[in-house]
Write a protein that binds this DNA or RNA. Structure first.
Length: 893
RNA sequence: GGGCGGUUAGCUCAGUUGGUUAGAGCACCUCGUUUACACCGAGGGGGUCGGGGGUUCGAGUCCCUCACCGCCCACCA
């Protein structure tokens, strides 16, 4: 078939048009879905990916995640592994409610006006609108996800897994309900976890307040008081003691007496506790157990009453007497005013303090005493920690293992309940007698597990689970757990868990804890953590700063492959990167380079096309050797999850070796007039074949570009694609042996060509001018190399005639030298003078090197203690440099 | 307060278990209409590897110390 017209590639790689079409071809071929039966003998490769939030749009972090995972998946798919990359989204209960509440507010509705049922209906409707967004965006990135297995953390499969998981925790005594102080967001009106309570350093005020001592009549003594320092005067109504340090002499006499709480007159014991810092404030501190985590502990130690004075909206309760109903900050101002009037405000000073704010809405979080569901994490954490310590789960980069350990050792019980509506309702039922029944049945228990009361008399817990509870089950819930499904057996445990280090604790730790407890096995072998993508100045990208780069806009501009190259190149795991315009341009330029190499290769078919024959040229043998070395190296790097290393390896091979040298040498061969049609056909075959191998190597990094080239390549050179119509399904190349001798020869020729070019440039010779070149080989093998490479030397150094058997005795003082021998250009006086100067510089450099090596090799310690190969290498290097120096006519001693 | 990183060319970053000439991309200088690519090609310049000390035949790499930058965790009201 005549394919010349079809194999034409457009002059430019039009990413916006080409990439979506390629993705459709992959989808049509069902290329992302594993075969129904696992290939026999194949290794498993399953990625656990963090399901993005359903409400979000894709940002650069997601793009990096997707690129890293897609690269690994494409590589392993090409290796023939049983590969699965399962897509999904997270229902993100608190984030989703935050977004929906905002939308409702615009419609004049609230959660309260709708009620639970209608609110959830509205939420599902909203989900239907947004659930596809992330998926569409992933398609544009080129993510080869198995869409047939798409999951959602609110689907029935997840619901079943959540119920089963909680039941097992409950049965094992690892889930409990109890009263404790938790973080409460008054705006989201829910409990949040420690991780969602973000600490900020802020400016506030430290007030000093007088608490009058109780006089003999029980009334406040106007002349005696104890002063306490506080940043939160509005919580005084919850005070149940005043504490001082046990060794604080100043207050020793007051210990055991009582102080009177202003406004309400409650009597507060003055107690001692180690927790008090004598140097801070007055050295006396009011104890408010229901509104401060420290005070809570003090309260427990001393058996103090715990009085809540803030309601769920952070307004003061009836406990606050005249201040009841006021917002916490309004109350604060009024209380301070009143204390000032009463003369009991002793001082106020600016103070830096750490305030926790809700990760979602930024509202100041309140410690709040309430009855909550908890998961006891200590035993779970210990198992996760030993997995990492004993190497059953490996974290990349390794230093995060220390961070992980530090966190796991200091972990508190996990408050899993949320007072929200959007999420999995906790499967616990209460009976009127106070019994608790936890059930994993879809429609709840038949009866109370303790007293047998019928289901009709039981009421289900209204709290839902923290989003991370269902996300934590992701690696196995998505494969059918708790059922022993075929997918679970085939794809679990997974191999690589990949995510940003930011959510190591949020998600990875919880997946490990839950996975180990529920499935008795580590949910993944390796945790690969990537860093944050920052702006060019190292700032975190955020909408408020206005420095956000939208990956989809970037893709429209330069293409998904270009963005992939930009994000992956030179990016070490766990390290933040700055995304600069230069990096993006570099990515675009590389895709363009590959595209244009393809245009050349495809267009270089010889006319007429003959049956290939003849011995391979130096160029062909060299490129095959370089290719073999590159395959070997790239494969090892991908196996080690060194993606940046892999990208650098193939970037260098493709650009420097293949394009800059091989294709240039191939041009020399193709344009020879003394070669036969058969030889030209063979060269073309080698070129297309190696180019096909290059495309395979590049595919994980440039999936779209390489796939776009693959089909036209196959049309003109079917041998290059070995019968596989789609590159995504082609086999990863296997490395043959590199040919060190050939590589050395070409290296030496390259050095000579460069040296000649250097002299030409230095002499200001017109670029197009042909100059005679004389080379006096330093030995027989060098002479053979020169003869073998004469064609390349002549064309690439632009020299003519070329004399490779020159008599060294006839060399001028301007002669240069390389490993192959001495060389000089036949040229005009100006060129001679410049060359002479170069030659002198070269001699000086050689002398310096030779001296250094002679000193080193004259050192008995070095000879005696360095390993033999190192010594031999240095000796060889010295001999080589001495030979070059001799050839230049300078013995140097 | 505790912990973890980082400091390598003008910029952004690599640098395997220590091996003696520390790399890349971008930027810079010179040259170039050679029919794949100017989103290109050729050549070139540029680093006492944050400071100091130590171990070693040999240190960007290991140890100690100091300085600066960043991040995470944390219960001084």
């Amino acid at each position: 078939m005549s394919t010349t017209a079809r194999s034409q590639l457009s002059p430019r790689y039009e990413a916006a048009a080409i990439e979506p079409a390629i993705y459709e071809r992959w989808l049509a071929a069902d290329a992302f879905t594993p075969s129904p039966e696992p290939p026999s003998g194949a290794k498993r490769f399953v990625i656990t990916q963090p399901p993005p939030n359903v409400t979000g749009a894709l940002h650069l972090g997601h793009a990096l995640t997707a690129f890293v995972e897609d690269m690994l998946v494409r590589y392993h798919r090409m290796l023939g592994d049983d590969t699965l990359w399962l897509p999904g989204v997270d229902h993100a209960s608190i984030a989703a409610q935050f977004v929906l509440d905002r939308i409702l507010a615009e419609e004049g509705e609230t959660r309260a006006t709708l009620g639970r049922e209608r609110y959830l209906q509205r939420m599902w409707q909203f989900m239907d609108e947004t659930r596809d967004v992330i998926g569409q965006q992933h398609r544009r990135l080129g993510a080869s996800l198995d869409w047939s297995r798409l999951r959602f953390t609110m689907d029935e499969g997840s619901a079943r897994a959540v119920r089963a998981a909680f039941k097992r925790l409950w049965d094992a005594g690892l889930a409990y309900r109890g009263e404790a102080l938790v973080n409460w967001c008054p705006r989201c009106r829910t409990t949040i976890s420690d991780l969602e309570n973000i600490k900020h350093e802020e400016s506030g005020t430290l007030w000093t307040i007088r608490y009058h001592l109780a006089g003999p009549d029980g009334k406040p003594d106007p002349d005696n008081w104890i002063s306490v320092a506080t940043t939160r005067p509005e919580t005084i109504f919850g005070d149940t003691a005043v504490a001082v340090h046990p060794e604080d002499e100043r207050y020793a006499a007051l210990v055991g007496r009582e102080a009177i709480l202003p406004f309400v007159g409650r009597r507060l014991p003055i107690i001692v506790d180690e927790h008090v810092e004598r140097e801070f404030g007055t050295g006396a501190v009011k104890i408010t157990p229901a509104h401060d985590f420290d005070d809570y502990e003090v309260g427990r130690r001393h058996g103090l009453p715990m009085i809540s004075v803030l309601d769920e909206d952070a307004r003061l309760t009836d406990e606050a007497g005249e201040f009841a109903g006021l917002d916490r900050y309004d109350a604060r101002a009024r209380i301070i005013d009143r204390l000032r009037e009463m003369g009991d405000l002793e001082g106020e000073a600016p103070h830096q303090l750490v305030i926790g704010r809700c990760d979602r809405c930024g509202t100041v979080v309140e410690p709040r005493l309430s009855v909550q569901w908890f998961v006891k994490v200590k035993p779970l954490a210990e198992r996760a920690l030993s997995s990492v310590r004993e190497g059953r789960t490996r974290i990349i980069p390794p230093h995060f293992e220390k961070v992980f350990a530090h966190w796991m050792e200091n972990i508190h019980d996990w408050a899993v309940g949320r007072q929200l509506w959007w999420g999995h309702r906790i499967p616990a039922w209460y009976c009127p007698d106070g019994h608790i029944t936890v059930s994993d049945a879809a429609d709840g228990p038949d009866a109370c597990a303790d007293c047998g009361r019928p289901a009709a008399e039981l009421t289900q817990e209204t709290d839902i689970f923290d989003t991370w509870f269902s996300s934590g089950l992701w690696p196995f819930s998505t494969l059918g757990w708790p059922e022993e499904t075929a997918d679970l057996q085939r794809f679990y445990p997974t191999q690589v868990m990949e995510t940003a280090y930011e959510i190591l604790f949020f998600w990875v730790a919880r997946m490990m804890m839950l996975g180990l407890f529920l499935t008795e096995v580590e949910p993944f072998e390796t945790v690969y953590l990537h860093g944050i993508v920052r702006d060019p100045y190292g700032q975190k990208m955020s909408k408020t700063k206005g420095n956000v780069v939208d990956p989809l806009e970037m893709i429209e501009e330069i293409g998904a492959d270009a963005l992939r190259v930009a994000l992956v190149s030179g990016n070490a795991p766990g390290v933040d990167q700055r995304l600069t315009a230069a990096k993006l341009t570099g990515g675009r330029n590389f895709t363009n380079k590959v595209w244009n190499a393809a245009r050349f290769v495809l267009g270089a078919a010889p006319e007429p096309m003959a049956e290939p024959a003849g011995d391979e040229t130096l160029a062909e043998r060299w490129v095959r050797s370089r290719l073999a070395a590159t395959i070997d190296r790239a494969t090892r790097q991908l196996d080690a999850l060194d993606l940046a290393g892999y990208a650098a390896t193939i970037h260098e091979f493709a650009w420097s070796d293949y394009c800059d040298w091989y294709l240039e040498m191939a041009k020399v061969e193709l344009r020879r007039e003394d070669s036969s049609d058969a030889e030209r056909a063979r060269l073309w075959r080698t070129t297309t074949e190696t180019f096909g191998e290059l495309l395979r190597l590049l595919h994980p990094l440039l999936p779209f570009v390489t796939e776009a080239i693959w089909e036209p390549l196959g049309e003109v050179a079917p041998w290059a694609i070995r019968g596989e119509a789609l590159l995504i399904r082609a086999a990863w190349p296997s490395a043959s042996a590199a040919d060190d001798a050939i590589e050395r020869t070409v290296d030496e020729l390259r050095d000579l060509i460069r040296a000649v070019r250097d002299q030409r440039t230095a002499a200001g010779v017109a670029a197009g001018a042909w100059l005679p070149l004389h080379v006096a080989p330093s030995g027989a093998s060098e002479r053979r190399a020169l003869e073998g490479g004469a064609r390349y030397l002549a064309a690439l150094a632009r020299v003519r005639p070329l004399d490779v058997t020159a008599d060294p005795a006839g060399r001028p003082s301007s002669a240069g030298s390389t490993a192959l021998g001495t060389f000089w250009l036949g040229s005009d006086a100006a060129a001679d003078e410049a060359a002479g100067q170069r030659a002198a510089e070269r001699r000086a450099e050689l002398r310096r090197q030779v001296d250094r090596l002679r000193t080193l090799l004259g050192n008995d310690d070095f000879i005696g203690r360095a390993p033999a190969p190192v010594v031999d290498r240095e000796r060889a290097r010295l001999a080589d440099l001495e030979a070059q120096l001799d050839a230049l006519g300078d013995g140097a001693g």
